[in-house]
């Protein structure tokens, strides 16, 4: 019991200090995860809406690809981006490997299928009455898609939350393309791995608590938006 107690008190001490290094890790985590979520939502929600509403050629294979992508292991996403950005790779000239940019790209690859898949489910689940009225409005595809997203808002908010949850908690992709360089590409998850490896359990737990609080705040905000919209 004293071991757990010691770890916990060390974690609390570090949290109370909240030093510059910790602040830097938290800030980078927020920036990378939010940017990757934003890219994932910007591309995934329209894709999911098209999949949920449309009846077009290639829809089924695309849906299978998205659903498979939802379960893509983060280390594989990291590996793919690593190959692309490696100095001899097709995008090697960009010179962004082991930078936050590379981490955003790798996490976006994880966020897009999640945002698309959950949105496709939400939009596809709109009632036949809703869909028929929507098609009867005679709108263009973009306008109709926008109304469908508004209509399926609680489900689309869940897609945003799921995408954020996916990227903020993953460690494999950012570790591979970021390299966990202290002060440059270290985020909460990779820092936890680092501290745990060095048996710095108090520090690892402190980082874990911060990660959970962060996830709680973002998801709390999204849930509030989700429920507020339901009133109408």
């Amino acid at each position: 019991m004293s071991f757990i107690g010691d770890v916990l008190s060390e974690a609390i001490r570090l949290l109370c200090q909240f030093g510059a290094e910790l602040r830097g890790v938290l800030w980078l985590t927020l920036v990378v995860s939010l940017l990757a979520t934003a890219i994932g939502v910007a591309l995934g929600v329209p894709l999911g809406t098209a999949l949920g509403l449309g009846r077009f050629r290639g829809r089924t294979p695309l849906l299978v690809a998205v659903n498979t992508g939802m379960g893509m292991p983060p280390v594989l996403a990291g590996l793919l981006i690593l190959l692309l950005l490696w100095r001899d790779g097709p995008l090697g000239s960009w010179g962004i490997l082991f930078t936050p940019q590379a981490m955003v790209i790798a996490q976006s690859l994880l966020a897009i299928p999640i945002a698309a898949g959950v949105t496709a489910g939400a939009v596809g689940g709109l009632s036949p009455v809703t869909r028929e009225q929507l098609s009867a409005l005679g709108l263009g595809k973009t306008a109709a898609g926008w109304i469908a997203v508004r209509e399926a808002w609680p489900g689309v908010a869940a897609a945003v939350a799921a995408a954020f949850g996916r990227v903020v908690s993953e460690v494999g992709a950012v570790l591979i393309v970021g390299g966990n360089i202290e002060g440059e590409t270290r985020v909460l998850t990779t820092a936890i791995v680092q501290e745990a490896r060095q048996a710095q359990f108090g520090a690892a737990l402190a980082l874990g608590i911060i990660l959970m609080v962060l996830a709680l705040m973002i998801n709390g905000a999204l849930t509030w938006l989700q429920l507020r919209e339901r009133v109408h």
């Binding site: 009632s127 028929e132 009225q133 929507l134 009867a136 005679g138 109304i147 508004r150 919209e229």
Partner: peptide
Amino acid sequence: AAYQPQHSHVFRGSAGWNLGLG
């Protein structure tokens, strides 16, 4: 042709916004 299905569905938003849709 402008078509109105049997069941009138209104979308999230104000009534005025719904009236002007499309």
